[in-house]
Amino acid sequence: MNLFQNDRCLYCHTFIVPTVSWGSLISKETEDPLCPACKEKLEKIVGETCRICSRPFHLLDEQYRDGDLCNDCTRWEEDLEWQGYLEKNHSLYLYNEFLKELIASYKFRGDYVLAKVFVEYFKKKIATIIPDLLVPIPLSDERLYERGFNQAAAVLTLAGYSAAEILTRIHSEKQSKKSREERIHLTQVFQLVSNSELTGKRILLIDDIYTTGSTLRHAAKLLKGAGAESIQALTIAR
């Protein structure tokens, strides 16, 4: 560890002064990708949440809660077309204004290095889930060309995991431009890569943002139909 070298925050680019302690003299500490000011702006999801989508109940009016589910997940689970496909979504942070800007820089402005902000969390969470396959939600060829990289796969790569890229995506209008109803009633937007053996596999889908859950459920439905045992998801923001 170089005690006299300041690292810069990956988002605001201010210098991060390393904390010097006896522990840091003995072993190298984990690199901190964000300065304290930026880190404080990230709102971790804490407390009681919806059993399926991780929506925090303390931010939800009681009338929109059904026991251990939010109303949105209740509607999904009452619909026989979608019931039971997505077991659980794990999200790290609330999608506040700071994270919205950070993800925009990462996702739309090509700032690949920002994937480092989420690497340590992904490692810890994946270690508790222990999936058989890590499947990033794919981009269409057109979107991949526009952005230069798949933001979901990039975090896995920097975390040292192999991405099972067994899904391909049909090009369509951006999800952010669609209403909630339009997202929910989309026809299947994914295709399975041929010769993918999924029988009995526990799959963890990787994506950046959980909004309505439509994208993840479309992928989960396809994978379950191909023989997967269970489908969970890991997302940066909720």
Rank of each mutant, 00 (worst) to 15 (best):
T30F: 06
Y121K: 15
I170W: 00
L94S: 11
G200T: 06
L204Q: 10
E181S: 14
Q5M: 09
K124V: 01
E78Y: 15
R238P: 00
G148I: 03
A127K: 10
Y161N: 01
E173H: 08
E43D: 04
F122R: 04
N96D: 10
I26W: 09
K177Q: 13
T215V: 03
R183L: 04
Q83F: 01
D32F: 01
I236A: 01
N195E: 13
N6C: 09
K221V: 00
V155W: 02
R109Q: 15
S91M: 05
S179V: 07
L102Q: 03
Q191G: 14
L69Q: 02
N195V: 00
H90Y: 12
E146Y: 03
Y106N: 04
K39S: 14
Q175E: 10
S21F: 07
E43G: 00
K107F: 10
R202M: 06
Y145N: 14
Q5Y: 13
L216M: 12
N71C: 05
S27H: 11
I126Q: 08
C38F: 00
A154I: 01
R202P: 03
R143D: 15
E81Y: 06
Y64G: 15
R180N: 06
Y93I: 02
S196M: 10
L192D: 10
L139I: 04
I184Y: 10
D132A: 07
L222C: 03
Q5G: 00
C9M: 08
K178I: 09
I170L: 14
A237G: 12
C50W: 05
P18I: 01
R147N: 09
I26S: 05
L94P: 00
I52N: 00
C73K: 08
F57Y: 08
S91I: 00
Q151H: 11
L114C: 02
L94F: 06
